[in-house]
Amino acid sequence: MTPILWLLRHVNSTVMARVVEEAMKLKRDFPDFVAGFDLMGREDQGRPLWYFRHELSMPSDRGLLLPFYFHAGETNLEGSDVDQNLLDALLFNTSRIGHGFALLRHPVAKELSRKRGVAVEICPISNQVTKLVDDLRNHPGAVLMAEDHPLVISSDDPAMFGSSGLSYDFYEALVGFGGLRSNLRTLKSLAINSIR
């Protein structure tokens, strides 16, 4: 298991530049150990990705590979900075979109992420606890699953939500997103996406 380096998104650009510099060095020195880089923390309480556009462009400007795995679009407020993070994450060639709840409101971003094979990391229990959705049958993940968009199931912060593991999130996704047609093939597909 290779770790994703991360930083809380409320820092300033000076701190971000220093950490991206360090992440590039670690990725160069330990390519099989470091998977990439992400910004963590609640998007609505931190800075949007675009605020760090210069710092996040440093790897590509220098011709270095530092894959990004951005949390983006964990909102139901259209037009907000958090909503915009989804598009910016794709502009920065993210390898994964964490949460991506707002993806359905951005058809071009949705199609681009599907064509690129950018998995959306869905966190069913977290999305219910944070009140993004009450009924998982109405979760954007149900539409994405029906459209065969690559999905990955995650527990987000299980200890914080009183959950005891990923199995509950898989169950909720299976029943809530897949409905009556869900079966073992659905679970297999979600597990293969996680490995991929």
Score class of each variant (00 low, 15 high):
Met1Cys: 08
Thr2Glu: 10
Thr2Asn: 14
Ile4Trp: 12
Trp6Gly: 14
Trp6Arg: 14
Leu7Asn: 07
Leu8Asp: 10
Thr14Arg: 12
Val15Gly: 06
Val15Trp: 11
Met16Lys: 05
Met16Tyr: 01
Val19Thr: 12
Val20Phe: 12
Leu26Thr: 00
Leu26His: 11
Leu26Arg: 14
Lys27Leu: 09
Lys27Gln: 10
Val34Leu: 10
Phe37Trp: 02
Asp38Tyr: 06
Arg42Val: 06
Asp44Gln: 13
Arg47Cys: 08
Pro48Trp: 01
Leu49Asp: 05
Phe52Gly: 06
His54Pro: 00
Leu56Trp: 02
Pro59Tyr: 00
Ser60Tyr: 15
Asp61Lys: 15
Gly63Glu: 04
Leu64Gly: 03
Leu65Cys: 10
Phe68Asn: 03
Phe70Ile: 02
Glu74Leu: 10
Glu74Phe: 06
Asn76Gly: 10
Leu77Ser: 12
Glu78Lys: 15
Ser80His: 07
Asp81Thr: 13
Asp81Lys: 13
Asp81Ala: 15
Leu86Thr: 11
Leu87Asp: 13
Asp88His: 14
Ala89Gly: 03
Ala89Asn: 01
Asn93Phe: 14
Thr94Ile: 14
Ser95Ala: 15
Ser95Gln: 15
Ile97Gln: 07
Ile97Val: 04
Ile97Phe: 00
Phe101Lys: 15
Leu104Thr: 09
Arg105Phe: 01
Arg105Thr: 08
His106Gln: 08
Pro107Asp: 05
Pro107Gln: 02
Ala109Met: 07
Lys110Gln: 14
Ser113Leu: 01
Gly117His: 04
Ala119Glu: 04
Ala119Lys: 11
Val120Ile: 12
Glu121Lys: 11
Glu121Cys: 13
Ile122Ser: 11
Cys123Thr: 07
Cys123Met: 08
Pro124Lys: 05
Pro124Gly: 04
Pro124Asp: 06
Ile125Cys: 11
Asn127Gly: 05
Asn127Gln: 08
Gln128Val: 12
Val129Leu: 07
Thr130Asn: 03
Thr130Gly: 01
Lys131Ile: 05
Leu132Lys: 07
Val133Thr: 07
Asp134Gly: 14
Asp134Tyr: 09
Asp135Ser: 11
His139Asp: 00
Met145His: 13
His149Thr: 00
His149Glu: 04
Pro150Val: 06
Ile153Gln: 03
Asp156Pro: 03
Asp156Asn: 09
Asp157Ile: 05
Asp157Trp: 02
Pro158Cys: 01
Ala159Val: 09
Gly162Trp: 05
Gly165Asp: 08
Leu166His: 02
Tyr168Trp: 09
Asp169Ser: 02
Asp169Lys: 02
Glu172His: 11
Ala173Phe: 05
Leu174Tyr: 15
Leu174Thr: 15
Val175Ser: 08
Phe177Thr: 03
Phe177Arg: 07
Gly179Trp: 04
Gly179Val: 02
Leu180Ile: 11
Ser182Asn: 01
Ser182Gly: 04
Arg185His: 15
Arg185Asn: 13
Lys188Leu: 09
Ser189Lys: 14
Ser194Lys: 11
Ser194Gln: 12
Ile195Trp: 11
